[in-house]
Amino acid sequence: MMGASFVKDRLFPVMTILLAILAIWYVAAYSMNAPFQRDFDRRAGETRTGTEFFMATMSQPKPTMPAPHQVAENLWKNTLTVKPWSKRSLVYHSWVTLSATLLGFAMGTALGVVIAIGIVHVPALDRSFLPWIIASQTIPILAVAPMIIVLLSAIGVTGLLPKALISTYLSFFPVAVGMVKGLRSPDVLHLDLMRTYSASRAQTLWKLRLPASMPFFFASMKVAIAASLIGAIVGELPTGAVAGIGSKLLAGSYYSQTVDIFAALIAGSIVAILLVSLVDLVGRLVNARMGAKTP
C-alpha cells in the first residue's frame, strides 16, 4: 500500500507544517497591517466592527505584509490567466531566471569538478588554491554582482551570460568542496587494488574516484543549484533588468507592490524546489543504477 504510506509518511508532515506556516502568516499579516488600517480608518472617520476591520487588513491594495490569499490570487492571475510568454506572466519571468540559473549551474558544476580533480591530483594546488577559493566565497555577492554586470556590459556582454556568471561564481564552490571530499573518499584498500594493476591516474580517476564520489556529487549539486538560482536573481537586481524574478522583485519594491514581491518570491521558491527535487531524483536514479541497496 504505497499510497497510504505516502500520505502518512510524506504528505501529512508536509501539510502540517504548511498549515502552521499559513496560520502564522495570517497572524503576522493582521498584526502588521492593523496599525496602517487603524490610522487610515481614523482619518476617513470610519468605524468598523471587529470582523470588518479584520477583513480590511486582509485586503489592502498595498499591504505591509500581504495575506496568503492575496499572494495566491496574484500568482493565479499572473500564471494561469495570461499567456506564458507575455511580459506579465510569472512563468515568463521564471523562465528567464531559470535559463540563467541552468547555464550558470552547468558552468559552475563543470568548473567545480575540474578544480576538485586538480586539487586531488596536484598537491601544490591543494595548498595554494583552496585558500583562494574559500576567500572568493567570503566576498559578499551583492558587492561583486554589480561589478561583474557593469564590467561585462562595458565590453559588450549583456543578457544571459553575466547573470549566469554570477550563478557560476556561487555554485562552483559547493561542487569543488564536495568533489574534493568525494574524490578522496575511496578507501586505501581500493587504491592499493588499482595500484596492483598499475592503473594510470586517469584510470584510477575514471574507474574508482569518480564513481565513489557520486553521492558527494549529488549532495553538493543540490546546494549548488539553489545557490545558482540566488545568483541569477541577484544578477538581475543591479541592472534594473526588465525580465526575470529579480526584476519583478525590484519593480515590486520600487512601486511598493508588496503582493507582487511576495508572488515573485513564491515563484522563485517553486522554481528552487523543482530544481532541487530534479537533482535529487537524478541522484536517486544514478544511485539505483550503481547497485545501491533499495530500502
Binding site: L193, T196, M214, G291, A292
Partner: peptide, 12 residues
C-alpha cells in the same frame, strides 16, 4: 596478481 585479505570489490 594480488588477492587481498578482504574482498575489496567495488560496490557499484
Amino acid at each position: 596478481g594480488y588477492v587481498f585479505q578482504q574482498a575489496a570489490l567495488l560496490p557499484w
